[in-house]
Structure formats: C-alpha cells, structure tokens
Design a protein around this nucleic acid. Structure first.
Length: 439
RNA sequence: CGGGGCGUAGCGCAGUCUGGUAGCGCAUCUGCUUUGGGAGCAGAGGGUCGCGUGUUCAAAUCACGCCGCCCCGACCA
C-alpha cells in the first residue's frame, strides 16, 4: 500500500477524552474514531488489526473442531423469554421495536439463539459433540463505557457454544476450548493466564477468565508465578486426545481474579517468592453451564438407551475488539504502538526519505514491488513529508520492520532496516534487504 | 445510577467570573526555500461558540431547561 493513496489519519496531539495509553494510541494512530459513547468506527489500520486477530481466533477454533456460523445481531425477544433472561438481563440489554411493534434486541450474547438452532436440527446423540461459533458484533448498554474499545458498548466477540450428551463430554469440550484459547492468544503475541472466575449472569459452575497482565488492567489478579512461563501446546496438539493433563497442569496452580480470590488459600498454596499480585485485562472467558438453557428450551437428544436427555452446554467468548486495546496495553513504548508481528496491520514499512529523487524512488519501488510480490503486507511511505515526520509516524503506528531508504545510504549502496520493538538498526545492501524480507 | 468536570475551527486550548467586531498553537490550502528524527518564511481558507427558551439596545459570556462527552465510584466480554 502506498501511503499517498491510503487513508491514515494520524493525530499529532492526543484527544482529551482518552485517558489510558491504548485508547490514546488508537486515536492517534488512526485506528478508530468514536461515534458515540462506547461505539467506534474502525478506520483502515485498525480494521486490519481487527481482521488479523479475528482470523487467528478462527484458525484456532477450527483446529479445535469448532464449526463457524454467523448469527444475526438482532434477535427476537421470544427466545429470551423462554429462558427467562429477557427480564433477568436488565437495562444492559438494548431493546428495540420494529414497525410491527415486535420486540427485538441487539444481542449481548447468543446462548438462547444457538440453542434454538441446535434443537431445531439435532435429535440424536450420534451428532454430538458439536461446537458452533461465530464472530459477531454484540451490544451491551454499559452504564459507563470507558477505555476506548476495551470497554465499549458495541464490541466484536467470538462466541462458541458446545453441546454434549453428558458431563464428561462437556468437560472434554471445555478442555478443547481451554487449549485453543492458550494457542490463540499466544499466536497474537500476548501472554494470558487462565484464572478461576465468577460465572456472572450467564450461569454455571466452572469458568475461567483468560487474563493479560497489564498495569492498566481493570481487575486485580492473584496467581502462581510459574503460570507466567508455562509452555503453550504447539500446532501439533491433538484435540481428539485427552487434554486433561494440559489443563490440570495449569489449574492445579493458584490463579484467581479478585472476585473469587481466597487470600488464605493463596498464602497456603503459593510460596511467598512465587506469589504474583498484579492487574490484568480479561480477553476471554469460558463457561460450563450444563443444562441451564437446554432444559427451559427443551434442547434434547435421544441417547443410546432411547431416552431423551437435555444436552450439557458450555459457552466460550473472546473479546476480539477488546484484544486490539489489550495488545497495545501490553506492547507499546513512548513513541507509540509496538505490534506483535502476527497482528500488525502491515509487516514492513518502506520509508522513502527523499521522494522525487530518482535514485531513492527507484530503490523504494524495487523493494516495494518485490516484497509485495513475495506476499508481504508492505506500507510504502512515498509522500514528500520530511524524514522526521515519517519516522515518527511509523513508530507511532508500530509497523514491526522499517526499511529506511535515503540518498545518504544509497551513495554507499545501502539501506537501513530497523526493528520497531528493539530499535536495532542494521545497514544492508538492496539485494540483502529484499532477500531478508521476501520470505 | 450517585458524585465531579467539560462542550468555542479537523486536533489541543484561551476568552465566560466583570455582556460590546471570536482568538492562539498545530493541522489544511498557495508560493518560495528546505529534506536522515514531527522544517522556515510569506500569504489564504475554515467556527449555527452543543441545542432551545428567556433577560438585555446587545449573549460564547447571565438565567432556566435539554442533549452530548469525560473522570471517580458501584456494575460488566
């Protein structure tokens, strides 16, 4: 992408409404624009990151055997009346009436609807286990939205729903999601720790929150230090095998958010030098809730014994839009965002320090063409801005690798490459540079 | 929802107390010079002062009402 043709509205000054660093940087780097309290438009750069995160989640859900669907944002109220949640949810639920005076709602979650879909088609235990998921915009009318996309009212969430014949099956489904989450977050370049959590209005008796440690996190968390550096299962993990050992390795160590924290147990189970008391951002949560929805909604299957039984369910959410903010909280410096490569909006930036100069133009065009042909996402700054402004912008938007092309280097036949994260600089020839990045 | 604060040009702000031609910096546009860490000079454009009602000869400024946004707290992916 040529910057001169792109839409990248960066701000030199920080808008006054933004308090925390991820919100400030998202506005300054031109990722989002606020349209109302807790409601944001995604600008090109932000949308790219959002899509990269969504795609990683999709790949890991698919790997774990979940099947993607897409449910609507608007739902009829009838479903929610069946489960009793229409009244239970309260003013957080945005209620709407259509022209026929039918009650609709902008979905805050989809257990009711997915259970309706399930019960319409699935009648036999032979079709289980089943895990259906989608990534869709949700709306929760928070009293007080804040921190940009970290706590908006409209947010993009991946939510998966498992259906099993019995508790043991549900437990296996839960474990699959547990492992898939570890993998997905790790691929995004962030470290998350699963922690025991309250089940909240969704209900159930087994739940973990996946927490990113960050000073600006909303919740206080307590955990065993060894959880921080525990290796995450690789691509070759077999989701059809018994995942219990992987899950148990983590769950047997203390980890809890302040809501469910037990100080005495923490001090009993965790030696003083292993106690971590920090702040964190919740980026995912998994629940087992049994028959909470299948019983009132009569979502039953016929078992091997010929008897109808309500299915055992679980639900599994990942805050896709929140992750954009959470990743920035976990990865930035004074100059701006430092994107982990897998979620960066572009892989490589090419900075033409003297646009209009025949030699630099030619070198830049060659690098741009060859890296693009090699499948790299390249952002080529071909504008006539001054070098200082270009450096500042690229640092701000956090592209992982910068290729700096200017007359000074070209006289010696070199360009400079800079790693955004470390700041490390290296002088390479044109050919070496292309060779390095053309994967 | 309780408490606090703020709405003036795209962004950051002054002006409001004490009513009297709407300002500054950045950004934008034009020209010239400049070009390795957010350039300089000269010129130009851009504002229903959140909305409404009232007071007044006169309202960004005073009064009342409303809307929006932010912060602290209680609540949540």
């Amino acid at each position: 992408m040529r910057l001169s043709r792109y839409f990248l509205p960066v701000l030199k000054e920080t808008p006054s409404e933004a308090q925390i660093v991820s919100h400030r940087l998202m506005l300054r780097a031109g990722l989002i624009r606020q349209e109302a309290a807790g409601i944001y438009a995604w600008l090109p750069l932000g949308f790219r990151v959002l899509q990269k995160i969504e795609q990683i989640v999709r790949e890991e859900m698919n790997r774990a055997g979940a099947i993607e669907i897409l449910m609507p944002t608007l739902q009829p109220s009838d479903l929610w009346k069946e489960t009793g949640r229409y009244d239970a949810y309260g003013p957080e639920m945005l209620r709407i009436k259509d022209r026929h005076d039918r009650e609709l709602l902008y979905g805050p979650t989809n257990e009711d609807m997915v259970t309706e879909i399930f019960r319409a088609y699935v009648k036999s235990y032979k079709q289980l286990p089943l895990n259906l998921y989608h990534t869709q915009w949700k709306f929760r009318d928070e009293v007080r939205p804040r921190f940009g996309v970290m706590r908006g009212r409209e947010f993009l969430m991946k939510d998966a729903y498992s259906f099993d014949l019995d508790k043991e099956g549900a437990r296996r489904s839960y474990n699959k999601m547990y492992v898939a989450y570890l993998r997905a977050f790790t691929r995004m370049g962030i470290k998350t720790i699963p922690m025991r959590a309250e089940t909240g209005p969704i209900g159930g008796d087994l739940s973990h929150e996946f927490i990113v440690l960050a000073d600006t996190g909303e919740s206080e968390v307590f955990c065993h230090k060894d959880l921080l550096d525990m290796p995450v299962p690789g691509e070759d993990v077999d989701f059809d095998a018994d995942l219990e050992p992987i899950v148990r390795q983590r769950t047997e160590l203390y980890a809890a958010t302040s809501d469910v924290h037990e100080a005495a147990r923490f001090e009993r189970e965790v030696p003083p030098d292993k106690r971590v008391n920090a702040r964190g951002i919740e980026v995912g949560q998994i629940f087992y809730f049994g028959t909470k929805y299948s019983v009132p909604m009569k979502a039953t299957v016929t078992g091997p014994d010929g008897k109808d039984v309500p299915i055992e369910g679980g639900s599994y959410g990942i805050g896709v839009s929140r992750l954009v903010g959470a990743i920035i909280e976990a990865s930035h410096d004074d100059a701006g965002i430092v994107w982990p490569e897998p979620v960066a909006p572009f892989d490589v930036a090419v900075l033409n320090l003297k646009a209009g100069d025949t030699a630099t133009d030619k070198a830049c065009e060659e690098i741009y063409a060859k890296l693009t042909a090699a499948g790299r996402d390249v952002l080529y700054d071909d504008t006539s801005d001054r070098p200082g402004a270009k450096f500042a912008t690229m640092d701000l938007i956090g592209i992982p690798h910068q290729i700096v092309v200017g007359p000074r280097g070209l006289e010696k036949g070199t360009v400079e490459i800079k790693v955004r994260k470390s700041g490390a600089k290296e002088e390479l020839s044109l050919a070496e540079t292309i060779n390095r990045f053309a994967k």
